[in-house]
Amino acid sequence: MQFHGNLTEAGSTRRVRAALLVDEPGQSPQTLCLAREDDTPVVQVSVADVIPAIGGGDTRLRLASGDIFHLAASTDSRPLEPFFPETVQRGAVLARIEAVGWRGATILAVLFLLLIAGIRFSIAPAGDLLAQLVPPHIVERGSSMVLQQLDTLLFEESQLPVVEQDRIRADFETLLPLVPAKFHNTRLHFRSAPGIGPNAFALPGNDIVLLDELVDFADNDDVVLGVLAHELGHVVHQHALRSVTRGAVVAIGVSLLVGSQDSIFEEIAGFGSSLVLSRQSREFEAEADGMAQGWIREAGRDKQALITFLEKLAAECGAMCEGGSILDSHPSLADRISALEN
């Protein structure tokens, strides 16, 4: 058999037409010979290394002499394989699997779509499982690190008088007996952040941050308690931690799908998954609202307060912070109010 191709001399661009010969008349069995067009006598050769063809490219064989023999991809090189070093065989197998026909491509396309769907629907369960696997002391550590970072970058010390802080804290602690024992040590931190406005946060651990701006914005203690109950809902359901772990699952999924790709398509995949995460965040908010309303009722406090607060927020802020679109982390204020009223 003759395998025609090009022979490039080692370390140069000098090239000549050549052929590898196997089982030709007069050739010793189990030998590989090289014939060059430019008159050099036929010599026996051995193959040192092979880079298998990919797509329509050439197979690159490095001979023991250092010269390179390029074999067209259309050539069936299987009779040559016994002369290849053993490690090469695996690559050749891979190349053969990759050369799918229309039927194979269809099967792979279906698999690909299933994989995307699989990743989409495993974000929540896999992320939540991951959250459960994180040891509690790591969560606590992380939570205090987040607070430290926020203190450096965003927060200022609270200007609330100690008396007022104590009153709010005492109020807050009436809610704690209502939640599972694991969360009885939930800490309340007072901070100020004029740039953020009236807000409160739940951190990944058992930490809640209340901003002075919210206390100023609220008309009475029942409103503040309503907001704190909402944040406590986040803590009890570990929403912050689960957002982080779900985000990690998304990051892993995106890198699996487009990990070896152009960055622009990674951006697109990232954008698509942020839609999923926003949607789940809105579900978290609704869940926290629901929990808060239950505890407020159990504590015998004004369950209208949270509704009043959201209405005031809607009135003062206008359409700009209405929320609820596919990209928002919070449901629309109107939806939250009507959900709370029912």
Binding site: I54, G55, G56, G57, A73, L94, I97, E98, A99, V100, W102, G104, A105, L108, A109, L111, F112, L115, I252, S255, L256, L257, G259, S260
Partner: peptide, 29 residues
């Protein structure tokens, strides 16, 4: 000399191998 079909096969086999090896295949991919 490459076709989209060639790349399609390479890409999807890569994705499957990356998933199976939990990402270790990425450099090879």
């Amino acid at each position: 000399s490459g076709t989209a079909m060639d790349l399609f096969g390479i890409r999807l086999i890569n994705i499957i191998l990356i998933a199976v090896t939990v990402g270790i295949w990425i450099p090879w991919a």
